[in-house]
Amino acid sequence: MGIRILKGGMLTTVQDLGRAGYQSQGFSVAGVMDVRSFKIANLLLDNPENEAVLEFTLIGPTVEFTSISIVAITGGDFQPTVNGEPVEMYKALYMKKGDILKFGSARTGSRGYLAFGSYLDVPVVMGSRCTNLKSRQGGFKGRKLEAGDYIHFRKKCQYLPFFLSRKLDLHEFDQNEAELRVVMGPQDDRFSKQGIETFLNSEYTVTSEFDRMGCRLDGPFIAPKETSDIISDGIAFGSVQVPSHGKPIILLADRQTTGGYAKIATVASVDIPKLVQRKTDHKIRFRAITVEEAQKLYMDELRELDEMRKVIHKPCKEVLECRLPAKRLAKLFE
């Protein structure tokens, strides 16, 4: 009862919201890069918010189901097929024993998510099922998935109520550019006025040095007042650090816990998915907002997710329409 990996794709790992609470010993949080797509994948299946999923990058995996399950696919469009037939994303999908779910390369976005109503059976390590590639911990044997790997399910999942309603009309990552809203600081005072203006008014390009740890951008030089070296301090998800070469590096899920370069700003949580779904050569702009605005955006997004939860729990049109012929038929028997 589970899945067999037939092809691992480029970088497929088991992830959840990450392993928090151990950063004081130097352990990275890890976890999913695109929290929004992750949450939507789980909510389509009524899974717990933090249930582990597969995250894949640029080229997706091929997965064989050895038992029935219900799954949902979100994030970038990896052109998924089941037994060769295209299937929809952002929708609950019924998988039968022997079905082969295949992902191609990312047509839009760069990261995809596959959630399972039957829950993946990997051990909980220090409070999380996520894979930390750096310290080789958690997930499936602390590493990315490869052909031949087998992951069991933790429970049976053959039925979900409102099955046909469980779909959302979302196309999130079609653009080649993104505006990221940022909260300035904590070390924006290390940069000259001109440096800050450059940062907020220039276009930056995503380079090929873009992985789960961070994303290096190329573009105009951001001038520090004196030096951008600081006494090492803690790093948040989405910290924008600027080393002496003057080009921003945005730190992501597998970020180090601490670092010694000044951080000019921090990307708003709701905008991190926009960044992590970009590809090399895509364009990035930054816009400053207050911490209160960023927290409001975060709360708004949670309300949006609640709305989605309501939509997928209503009887859908197809179901309602089926009742019309039934009513007419009923009249004949009166």
């Binding site: 950063q23 949080v29 006494i231 301090d233 803690g234 948040a236 949670l302």
Partner: peptide, 22 residues
């Protein structure tokens, strides 16, 4: 949620659903 003590600073990760910045 988590704390990162450093040489001369302390970074605290928190959940804004539970406690606001203010």
């Amino acid at each position: 949620v988590d704390m990162i003590p450093a040489f001369c600073s302390l970074l605290i990760n928190y959940d804004p659903r539970i406690i606001t910045y203010d």
